[in-house]
Write a protein that binds this DNA or RNA. Structure first.
Ligand SMILES: [Mn+2]
Ligand SMILES: [Mn+2]
Ligand SMILES: [Zn+2]
Ligand SMILES: [Zn+2]
Lengths: 145, 145
DNA sequence: CTGTTATCGATAATGATTATAAAATAATAA
DNA sequence: TTATTATTTTATAATCATTATCGATAACAG
């Protein structure tokens, strides 16, 4: 945990941003809830428990900043809100999601799986792939009974 | 064109909805601009040229209805608005997108490409895939110079 | 025709996100 | 240290996409 916070601190400093107490509290929440997919409001409420004086706008600004630094990815599952997802430690590409249409659960796939597909896209479409977003919609193991 | 409108009309009737003049005008706009990825506002302005009396709420309601019927897919490229994308004639799965980070252009890939990946997801994760959303972010052919 | 239901258009309400302005904090210079 | 400047924060207002409401109108059934 402290290790990852240190790395994020360095990433901020590299762009001459500071790791303020508010920013650190926000990052800690994201690390503690790494498996989840929190909205800005979710993050705000959780950060408030550690740092009750924080404002919602600061959380939005911090999440935006972390997005720019590629510390988090901003994603959208089609409900009205953006969600913020920590990049896996050292991952080159964004991970994938399995969204259950029955119970709404979201599972993560860290394996790349798209290497072959990306080669096809680069060769046949001449498109230079930098990143991807892949979500499967279907029925999770539990909901299949 | 008329053929596809007929098919959509039948899909509506199958759920006992009617193809009102407003709905037809909206569908015509979507068919005429099939390559594009129009927002509700975009659709509204275009429909207004054919049927100036239409209201914005009706366009939203119609797009929502067409989403339910799987005639269009509602997608989100991360700018603040939802966009509506006609399903390809007879396509089982949603098509993919190549978004250029340089010029913002959006290219479509109709080929499935994910058959192998979906097999892996079904076998290794026990997740029954019903549909997918795949977007590549990168540099398009033109912007590579 | 007459009552019922579906749909529409105008507009108000909602809710997420962003912009603004004043205060607080941190960095820097004298 | 003290003054000055730049950055960040908080509270709050503004924005903007989308949804809800409601009275009017059209389609429909009996
Ligand atoms: Mn995730
Ligand atoms: Mn498309
Ligand atoms: Zn499930
Ligand atoms: Zn381009």
């Amino acid at each position: 945990m402290e290790h990852r916070i240190d790395r994020i601190k360095k990433q901020l400093h590299a762009q001459s941003y500071k790791l303020t107490p508010q920013r650190e509290a926000t990052v800690r929440v994201l690390l503690e809830r790494e498996e989840d997919h929190l909205s800005a409001e979710d993050v705000y409420l959780l950060v408030k428990e550690k740092a009750p004086e924080i404002g919602l706008a600061t959380v939005y600004r911090t999440l935006e900043l972390l997005s720019e630094l590629k510390v988090v990815d901003k994603i959208n599952f089609g409900d009205g809100v953006s969600r913020y997802d920590l990049r896996k430690e050292g991952a080159a590409h964004f991970h994938h999601h399995l969204v259950c249409m029955e119970c709404g659960s979201v599972e993560e796939i860290v394996d790349d799986l798209l290497e072959d597909v990306e080669k096809i896209v680069e060769n046949d479409w001449g498109f230079q792939v930098k990143d991807h977003r892949l979500t499967f919609h279907g029925i999770c193991r539990d909901c299949q009974k």
